[in-house]
Design a protein around this nucleic acid. Structure first.
Lengths: 143, 143
DNA sequence: CATAATCTCTCTAGCAGCTATAGCTTCAAG
DNA sequence: CTTGAAGCTATAGCTGCTAGAGAGATTATG
């Protein structure tokens, strides 16, 4: 059995994050010690590692929740898991495309700046007038 | 003079967002009508368009706050504005690099999936064990 | 002029995915 | 037996908004 600290250290997840995952129901409530401290079986380490890994790959927690419930039923078809992964891939690609447009615009803006005074600064000017832009970039990228 | 609705429609910014910007101090508090409604001069439209455009380019509001205070002092050097833009460019590139690694990993994961049952699903398996991964991707991408 | 439809007002709470703080208890090492 | 680390709960904060409630203001139509 593992304390929450050991579990976190083993999985590379911070302690408050583990409690948060429990709170939102993607980690089960573990048994407690006599002194009310959480004690985890080894299997929780696998589950937490899974979550962490999926988070690193950018899966939202809701998708991870679905993937976890799929992985609990090993005899079912994996088409659903595949669909979730494919959706994540598409979302990732969309974000890349968007960021590349931003990158191009920022490069253009910076290249044009002669670095004089603010009054003839291209950075400020371009920001102030969308008409200076080469591309459309109308949907804000979520940071 | 513009009401908040007209201002928002002209700048392409939603009304609550304008009030939010006022609250955090990047838009000035405007005069009010006899009935306590906000009335904006045309100049606020420029400022709001500037903000919106910078947001579209992914600048965080704190950076925009700095850019705005720079643009209020047109005789100063634009080096500071340039630095902010360059930092934004670097941040954008870092995010792209990170997302491309994720994209590659997701592609690999999906390609390997034979789409049978969960028990031999590569998607689930790879997520469960980081050792299956080709690359490191240890820092979670902010969504 | 009355009424209805549309703005606008303030205030509060919620989203994701944690992180931080405060004030307390429990545990392991020396 | 004491000290310090680690654990507990509960609450608030982060970014950048968005949604809702319930009230008042303004504008358009009859």
């Amino acid at each position: 059995m593992l304390t929450i600290g050991k579990l976190g250290a083993s999985a590379g997840v911070k302690v408050p994050t583990i409690r948060y995952y429990e709170q939102i129901g993607i980690l089960p409530e573990p048994d407690r010690s006599a002194g009310n401290q959480r004690l985890y079986p080894k299997t929780t380490l696998d589950r937490l590692a899974f979550i962490r890994h999926a988070r690193e790959l950018g899966f939202p927690l809701e998708a991870i929740r679905d993937l976890l419930s799929l992985s609990d039923r090993p005899d079912q078809s994996c088409a659903a898991a595949d669909a979730i992964a494919k959706a994540q891939l598409l979302a990732t690609r969309a974000r890349i495309a968007r960021l590349r447009a931003l990158e191009a615009e920022l490069e253009r803006m910076i290249d044009q700046c002669a670095c004089g005074t603010i009054s003839d600064c291209r950075v400020i000017e371009v920001l102030g007038d969308h008409a200076h832009c080469a591309h459309d970039h109308h949907v804000a990228e979520t940071e």
